[in-house]
Write a protein that binds this DNA or RNA. Sequence first.
DNA 1: AAGTAACCACACCGGTCGGTATACTCGCAG
DNA 2: CTGCGAGTATACCGACCGGTGTGGTTACTT
Lengths: 191, 191
Amino acid sequence: MTATGTERPLTPAGRRVLDTASRLFYERGINTVGMDLIADQAGVTKKTVYDRFGSKDALVAAYLAARDRRWRAWVGEYTAAAEGPRERALAVFDALEAWMEGLDPRGCAMVNACVELTDPDHPGLRVAHEQKRWTRELFLGLAAEAGAADPEETADALLVLHEGAVVAYNTAGVRTAVRTARRVAGDLLSR
Amino acid sequence: MTATGTERPLTPAGRRVLDTASRLFYERGINTVGMDLIADQAGVTKKTVYDRFGSKDALVAAYLAARDRRWRAWVGEYTAAAEGPRERALAVFDALEAWMEGLDPRGCAMVNACVELTDPDHPGLRVAHEQKRWTRELFLGLAAEAGAADPEETADALLVLHEGAVVAYNTAGVRTAVRTARRVAGDLLSR
DNA sequence: AAGTAACCACACCGGTCGGTATACTCGCAG
DNA sequence: CTGCGAGTATACCGACCGGTGTGGTTACTT
């Protein structure tokens, strides 16, 4: 309830809890981080955590939603700054590279959530899936705008490159994965 | 110790444990499956599990190693059956598509392990990373064989497409992701 | 002055986690 | 016939899991 729907400004303690939870969930994984640890690290009692967020599931969903919001804004800046349809599509990869530069070796939080949250009804899964749907729609619009022969097919390809770059970077240690993906995407949009 | 190193033929109960654990770890996630559940489902006491595998970490590593062995053999069949260097490279994507056809919506076990296992010293991580390293080497050899201008760069691109296809399929619901990845890979190898 | 939202401290709940200990039975090889 | 590996059954361990309840203290409204 509190998670994604309403945009209540969050109390100071609530903010601290969400920030702390975000860091811990991302760095150590959702399932391995307990509510006790989050409360402790946030300098807050567990009671306060449950007063603000209601349940761990809701807190997880809030974490994912906040991160999603940040990511969309981040990408928006890059695509807005780019000139021309082809460059706007490639700007998504620039955004990704800059985003990942921030020392994360832990991959995409949404993908991780899909792996960690086994229960198909978990509220966090909807956030994760929605973000991937959004990304595909973004690519679809950009592909069409760039005059791709088959925008749907091109959007799929761009999404594959996008997701693959993150995974290749994080699990196979391919440090140049994003740049490689961008190059292939560029070829794709040139034909 | 017992996990990856030696190839002890596994006792009947040990087999049952490993098979059960493999299914549960993959379907429900490593962290959410307890040793009690594995023992129960395998029709075995927890004592037996620990007698055979020593620890959960070792059992996890054994699960990943077994799955890795199966995957390599699977890919080997496809690449061996293909004619010509270009087709051999694309055969990896055919292998992937056929592999995933087996009703899994849970993605790559190695990638999942990288997400779930936070401890950098976990023995399962080495198995997972080694499999990705192997896959990249496979692509590197095939790219060179196919006469790619820059085999390293091409191998990276093929790996990105490979990993991205699985993720796009499982988290974004792009059902044709593997075929799309294969098509882009084909373009890549034609130039 | 009264009410209320936000927080604190702390104690507690049933259940599960990974892992161990003890003691016993079975089949098989020396 | 004896020893041993493989397996059974059961009970236990401390730690942690998500979550609740009680009671009290601020601080800002109305």
